[in-house]
Computed example of a mutant assay.
Amino acid sequence: MPNPIAPDSRWCPPGPAMLFCPGDRPDRYQKAADRADVVILDLEDAVAADNRDAAREALVATQLDPDRTIVRINSSSTGEARRDLAAIAETLYRVVLVAKAESAEEVARTEMQTIALIESPTGAVNVNEIAAAPNIIGMMWGAEDLVAGLGGTSSRFGPDEPRPGTYRDVARHVRAAVRLAAAAHDLFAVDAVHLDIADVDGLRDEVRDAVALGYQATACIHPSQVQTIRDGYRPSAEQVEWAGGVLAAAEEHAGVFSYDGRMVDGPVLSQARAVLTRAGVDPAQD
């Protein structure tokens, strides 16, 4: 079912690096905004339960550019979401990230443009239903809460296991399910955070894979991760040249054709347009 929010009125990430910032640390708000493409002001996990009122007060008192800001609110099951939304109503922010989203009804309850964060077993099972919520614009997933909900201990393989540092199969399954559900409902998708800040190579590999799967952004927890994410999403000069050449050649062919030794059909043209879009080039104008 088509999303009733018109595509030209939906918020979308202005860049690929989305940085979490604790809601109760207003001294960090502007610093985060200066470093990242999008700031996620967090009223949930990053804030101790007894400090959430202070975080909401800071949210209202210290406002950022609403075009580059998302507010993560608590799950409706905690009883905190209503107070979060009341605080947001006093700001210019219009996009929320619903933590531990588990149903379309929960997403619709915000009455705002909403990104659903899939990070529980129930949310993972209901991912396609959630993606059909009337006010949803994007989806994100999270590994650690997911594994905790399974009664597990780690989302990734350890140093003495196969594929050390990479996601275990259940986490990979949810990552793929979120991407598929988002694409099926014409939503953008945001990849999960890489918690090991020192593991730059691991983050780089994960971003490269996210780009290959069509993710539009990656969330992060530290400013030092921003440039790695930006670099990973930015196409190389060679990729941009190839994409532009393919689309130019397509103007001279009515069907399948060969370009640079490769067969080109509809899906390849879509991939070329995606490359130009990530490079900041309008494919229609190329």
Rank of each mutant, 00 (worst) to 15 (best):
T69K: 01
I70H: 05
I70C: 05
V71N: 01
V71L: 04
V71Q: 00
V71G: 00
R72H: 15
I73R: 05
S76T: 03
S77W: 13
S77M: 10
G79V: 07
G79Q: 03
E80F: 04
E80C: 06
A81T: 13
R82V: 09
R82E: 15
R83M: 06
R83D: 15
L85Y: 03
I88S: 04
I88M: 00
A89Q: 01
A89V: 04
E90G: 04
T91N: 14
L92I: 03
Y93G: 02
R94C: 04
R94T: 00
V95F: 01
V95D: 00
L97T: 00
A99E: 03
K100G: 07
A101L: 08
E106M: 07
V107I: 14
R109S: 15
T110V: 08
E111S: 10
E111L: 06
T114P: 05
I115T: 15
I115A: 07
L117R: 05
I118M: 11
I118S: 05
E119C: 14
E119V: 14
S120V: 11
T122S: 12
V127T: 09
I130C: 10
I130Y: 04
I130S: 09
A131R: 05
A132N: 06
A132V: 11
A132P: 10
A132R: 12
A133M: 11
P134H: 05
P134A: 08
P134D: 12
I136W: 06
I136G: 08
I136T: 07
I137C: 11
I137K: 06
G138L: 10
G138K: 03
M139T: 12
M140P: 07
M140E: 00
M140K: 09
A143E: 05
D145W: 13
